[in-house]
Amino acid sequence: MTAYRDGATVVVLVPASMSRAEEQRHVDALVARLLAREARARARGGDDELMTRAKELLRQHLVPQVGRVLPPTRVTWVGNQRRRWGSCTPTDRTIRLSDRLRPMPAWVRDYVLLHELVHLVEPGHTPRFHALLAAYADADRARGYLEGYADAARLEIGPEPDDGPDDGPDDEPDDGPEERGPGR
């Protein structure tokens, strides 16, 4: 079951086997959760602010190193990334940042966003990728912050049952900083 926006329309997917009463109860809850998530995003700065920041980071950090760089087509906050801080799909130039980054310092959010932007130039975690990312003055500091944050979170909740990679669109190899090893 899920709810998402398709333009101005809210789309809700539920199993066909549900009764009408169950369906209505779940639809109401999913729509309420979606609207609350959108309200939080507006209150904290939404996707438009992320796109603006992405373009600034491109101009400041990547254009001087590689010349002209096409900006991402979309940069969004997402709530479904529990093991990654961000992910990028270079083929369609989309970037997703975990909403867990929202309360973190701006220089940490910038590092993760820049990490994903570098994937638009260099899809894999190659030596060139690391050289481009190393130009960000706070890269080591931000990686340390994220590693410390992830370690503290694991101490609070304990290790996940399966600490291996997940199968799914946001956990493909080389698509973003992971909690266990950002920037590697």
Rank of each mutant, 00 (worst) to 15 (best):
A3P: 11
G7E: 09
G7H: 10
T9L: 13
V12A: 11
L13T: 10
V14C: 10
V14H: 04
S17N: 07
M18P: 02
M18L: 12
E22P: 04
R25D: 13
D28S: 12
D28V: 07
D28H: 11
L30M: 11
L30D: 09
L30W: 10
L30T: 05
R33D: 14
L34T: 07
L34N: 10
L34G: 09
R37E: 13
R40G: 06
R40I: 08
R42C: 02
G45K: 09
G46L: 07
D47W: 09
D48K: 11
E49I: 01
E49A: 10
L50F: 04
M51V: 13
M51K: 05
A54K: 00
K55E: 11
L57P: 03
L57H: 00
R59L: 12
Q60I: 11
P64A: 10
Q65E: 12
G67E: 06
V69P: 00
P71G: 10
P71C: 03
P72E: 00
P72R: 00
T73M: 04
V75G: 08
W77M: 04
G79C: 01
N80R: 13
Q81A: 07
R84Q: 14
G86L: 07
C88S: 07
T89M: 04
D92P: 07
R96W: 08
S98L: 06
D99L: 02
R100M: 07
L101I: 05
L101S: 02
P103E: 03
M104R: 05
P105V: 01
P105I: 02
P105R: 02
W107Q: 08
W107L: 08
V108C: 05
Y111R: 01
L113K: 01
L113W: 01
H115A: 02
H115V: 01
H115Q: 04
H115L: 01
E116P: 03
H119F: 00
L120Y: 05
P123A: 00
G124T: 03
H125M: 02
T126K: 01
R128Y: 02
R128E: 09
R128T: 13
H130K: 15
H130G: 05
A131Y: 06
A131G: 15
L132K: 04
L133N: 06
A135F: 08
Y136D: 08
Y136G: 04
A137L: 14
A139H: 10
A139S: 13
D140L: 11
R141E: 12
A142K: 06
R143L: 03
R143I: 15
G144W: 04
G144Q: 09
G144T: 14
G144A: 11
Y145P: 03
Y145Q: 10
L146A: 09
G148V: 06
G148T: 09
A150D: 13
D151E: 14
A153E: 15
E156F: 07
E156W: 07
I157L: 10
G158Q: 04
P161C: 09
D162V: 06
G164K: 09
P165E: 11
P165R: 14
P165H: 06
D167N: 12
D167I: 15
P169N: 07
D170L: 08
D171T: 13
E172V: 07
D174L: 06
D174M: 04
D175E: 13
G176M: 08
E179P: 03
R180H: 15
P182Y: 05
R184N: 02
